[in-house]
Design a protein around this nucleic acid. Structure first.
Lengths: 249, 249
DNA sequence: CAGTGGTCTAGACCACGAT
DNA sequence: TCGTGGTCTAGACCACTGA
């Protein structure tokens, strides 16, 4: 009987692992420069493609981010805390603290892209909103000058026609205030949360490096009598967000 | 004045884009085999590394998954719907049902790994639970024979000592029923949701291919008088889950 | 056994960033 | 200007899959 020998991982994995340990142990900190391709070639005696492959592992893990002409650097994670139902927030009952510190709460955001258009609803949107024609408000949010979220709000066309919701400036209180004035104020919300890798288009619009997933939040707003009045699809940089949901048993 | 010419993307990107379109347009369906490295070399007249790079793009996007010795195939996405508030309602755990019954919406799940141990709390866990010693229940959940979630529930040691919570079988209703019998039934919950790429260890335990993010849910359970009685850290295959949260305005 | 993807070498030219 | 990462070629050997 011979005990099964665990096969040695390939060289590029071992190089990646040693760099990963340096990052997780804190030897390399946020924003520090990793050894470059040339340095790894010299240190480990490997070809350039192999050194490159090792760095690619960390980049695809989201631990490192490459900068053309400069080097590969340790990625930082300073999330924005996005609250779901705020009125149920933990501060009202618990003394526990968040696991992940986020001093970034309350930082100012900007809307640096905004389009409002009447469109034909996709099959899914049509099914949820129960209509074929919709008004769509698309915008991109940035924090500290960096884009962090794409959002597209859909409204039934006949519901919001000739209201400020169809214009860039919705007025004080935003779209929910306008919906309330129309007698269709939201009373209930459902949010569906998913995560995946971004499409190239999404990655470009959000300025995401490789190895950076996106969080998708699809929020439906319902009136008290059960009508769906808004469908908001959000695409968030996963490295920039922590979503918080509070609820009772 | 010359108008700025958008630079052509590199060959491997164009190859990847054409494959992506084939997938998104439905020409290639779930589980279909993509053209392999040799096919792409012939079709586009590129070197093997370039064909490989093109496939790597789709793999890292989570659109395709490679199978050694066989080919590269279109990835499928059949998520489990995990309900936030509903699954934790008193009606669910109050009458002898396990939480996961409402999770899989008809698909059977299994717990194929389970360990229960008394441990020293990490600094973060100690801060949230307010104690140094904890009991930790770690398990792995599988659906359709595939692992989909890793979970680690932490309980204050002095609270659950000598209860079924410290044993593999917690009895009918699970840990929340036991906590309620102890007079520490959860009344409020907070869930923090993040997403990132998995570590190699997490990817191995969940059997994740490249390009597959994980969703992290950190749930804190509080009693009515504000004590934190559980901290549950979950790591989910992002391709297997949709999280749903319902709340009122 | 033939074909596949996984790993690796040894070159090359390029665009870009810092200096 | 020089070093960086980005792209690409033309080979090689390996382990694994499937017929």
């Amino acid at each position: 009987m011979e005990s099964p020998v665990p096969p040695e991982p390939p060289i590029y994995r071992r190089i990646a692992e040693s760099l990963r340990q340096a990052i997780l142990a804190g030897d390399l900190r946020d924003g520090d420069r990793l050894p470059g391709e040339n340095a790894l070639m010299a240190e480990y005696g490997v070809a350039r493609a192999t050194a490159r492959q090792a760095l690619g592992v960390l980049i695809n893990e989201g631990l490192a981010v490459p900068r053309r002409g400069s080097g590969v650097y340790v990625r930082r994670f300073r999330p924005i805390r996005r609250h779901g139902p705020r009125r149920l927030s933990r501060e009202q009952w618990g003394r526990g603290r968040a696991i992940w510190d986020s001093d970034t709460t309350g930082r100012p955001y900007t809307v640096d892209e905004l389009t409002v258009a009447r469109e034909s609803a996709s099959a899914e949107v049509a099914r949820v909103l129960g209509c074929e024609e919709v008004w769509v408000r698309r915008r991109r949010y940035s924090v500290d000058g960096r884009p962090v979220q794409l959002a597209a709000s859909h409204f039934p066309a006949e519901l919001v026609a000739d209201t400020p919701i169809t214009r860039p400036d919705t007025g004080p209180g935003g779209v929910y205030a306008r919906l309330r004035e129309l007698g269709h104020g939201p009373a209930h919300f459902t949010e569906e949360v998913r995560a995946r890798m971004p499409s190239p288009r999404e990655a470009a619009r959000l300025g995401l490096p490789a190895g950076n997933p996106v969080i998708l939040v699809c929020r439906s707003a319902y009136t008290a009598d059960g009508r769906t009045v808004e469908l908001n699809e959000m695409i968030m940089d996963a490295a920039s967000y922590v979503l918080q949901y509070d609820f009772d048993a």
